[in-house]
Each structure stands twice: as C-alpha cells, then as structure tokens.
Simulated assay, not measured.
Amino acid sequence: MHTVLLTGAGGRVGDAILDELADDYEWRLLDRDPLTGDLPGETVVADITDETAVREAMEGIDTVIHLAGDPRPEAPWDSVLRNNIDGTQTVFEAAVDAGVENVVFASSNHAVGAYETEARRPDLYREHDEFRLDGSELPRPGNLYGVSKAAGETLGRYYYDEYGLSVCCVRIGNLTKGHPPIDYERGQAMWLSYRDCAHLVDCAIQADYDYEIVYGISDNDRKYYSIDRAREVLGYEPQDNSAAHE
C-alpha cells in the first residue's frame, strides 16, 4: 500500500484528510505534540526543524503531505522563518534524500492575499473568469505568514528543478467542518469543505505531475480563485458549493 507521511497531522487540514482517507493509505503521522484518538498508522512526535527526526520519519515514504508550520496569519517573523521556511526546507531536503516520489505542500490563500484590492472586488471574480487567480500569477502576500507560504512554493520549485521531485502546492482557501461561513461573501467564495479537501489531497497523491500550483476551494458559485488547473492536472472533482448553504 502507498505510504504517506503527513506532517502537522494534528491540525484542521490533517483532520479533514484523515476523516476521509484513513483506510486508503499506510500513514505515518508526524506532529510536534502527541496525537490522541483513534488514528491510522504510526505516529511520530517531532518538530519539523529537527533534521534527524524528519529524516528518520521519511524512511520508506512514497508521498509527503506537508502541513506543519505556524498557521497564524499574524505570526511574527521569527516563528514563520523557523517553522514555515526552515522547517519546509528540511522536509524537502529529506524527501529528496529518501527518494520520495512527490510532496504535496500546503500553501495558503495568504500567499496571494494582496491581490484583493479595490480593482479586484468579488463581483469581478464572480462574473468574469479572467479576473480569477489561477496559480500562474506571482505570489503577492498580504502578511508575513503569506510570505512564508510563498517561500515554501519557491522551495518546491527549486527542488523540482534541481532534483526532479514532483511538487504540488495547494493554496488552501477557507476550510471549515460542516457548512461554510454564511455571514460574509469572502468566506463563501474561498470555502473548502472537509470532503473536497480530502478529495483534492487524494488526487494530489495519485496524479502524475511535475511542479504545480493549484487552488484548494470547493466548487462555489462565488469564486476568487479558479479550480481549472486542479481539475485538469489532478482530476479534482469537488462535490460541494457554498451556495447550497445560503
């Protein structure tokens, strides 16, 4: 069975993935804090900045889903530098040395948050496909957390170009369990359901690609981002739509 290392397994994205895919792969779950509950596979308590521990966890792995890092949009520079940039480089380096097939990197909408200007309001995104971000645009972070995610994408590009490591960067939108936020349009436009999140990651594990940047949102009527690339390259077919919950 395909063996997958999931870093940051104790977070919300990890919860969404394991909710749907627990029985589909051989899992190794890594988190800096002890994991509890009925979990698949083996667990590893380690920090991703610990090179020795990461290399040990990488042994025998086919795919890495890299979620670990400081998830706070307001996180200070010393934290995002250590956890999100240095830690991500440690993961990529260990993946190459271990002969991993592909890395799925959890990027974020914050890597492009500064595109949300007065010239690119939701009505333009909603009505005109050409205004939607599609992954071909340059990063434009709106905070230091977004800077760290843009740096992670660039590290992924380097490790593909230099070593041939297949990398899929997923710019995750607004992941919630259950229904989407119903009180503001931005949250609905960026919504990613648990079911679609797991499906997208499953596609990224299975698909054949080189280096890709795709957006992780459900098939919402309102969209800031295009999911065309995820459909084309990964075979992503989301089932949910925030409009169904209005």
Rank of each mutant, 00 (worst) to 15 (best):
Y215F: 15
D129Q: 12
R229I: 04
V147A: 14
A68R: 06
A9G: 11
E74C: 13
H66D: 03
V233S: 02
G178Q: 01
I85Y: 07
E232M: 01
I217G: 07
P139V: 01
L35R: 10
S242T: 02
N220Q: 03
Y224F: 15
L35I: 03
E127L: 15
E232L: 03
S148N: 08
V44K: 06
C197L: 00
Y194N: 03
T7K: 08
Y125R: 14
D228A: 15
E246L: 15
P71N: 07
A46G: 06
H110G: 12
L30F: 01
I48M: 12
N84I: 01
P71Y: 06
T90R: 09
G69P: 03
E153W: 03
L39Q: 10
P122W: 12
Y184R: 13
G11Y: 04
I172H: 13
E93W: 03
W191F: 05
Y236H: 03
R120H: 09
P76Q: 12
N174C: 04
R140E: 10
G14R: 00
D97C: 07
A207G: 03
S108C: 07
Q239G: 06
Y145Q: 08
D86Q: 14
E51V: 13
D228V: 07
Y158Q: 10
L155H: 05
Y225A: 07
H2M: 12
V13T: 13
T176S: 12
V44H: 06
E137D: 14
D228E: 14
I172R: 13
R28I: 04
T90G: 02
L138G: 06
P73M: 04
D134L: 06
G235H: 08
D47Q: 11
D208H: 10
D62I: 04
A57N: 05
H179A: 10
Q188P: 08
N83L: 13
D50I: 09
G187E: 00
T154D: 11
L39H: 13
I48C: 06
V45Q: 10
D97A: 15
G113Y: 04
R120V: 05
Y163I: 07
Q239E: 15
E130I: 12
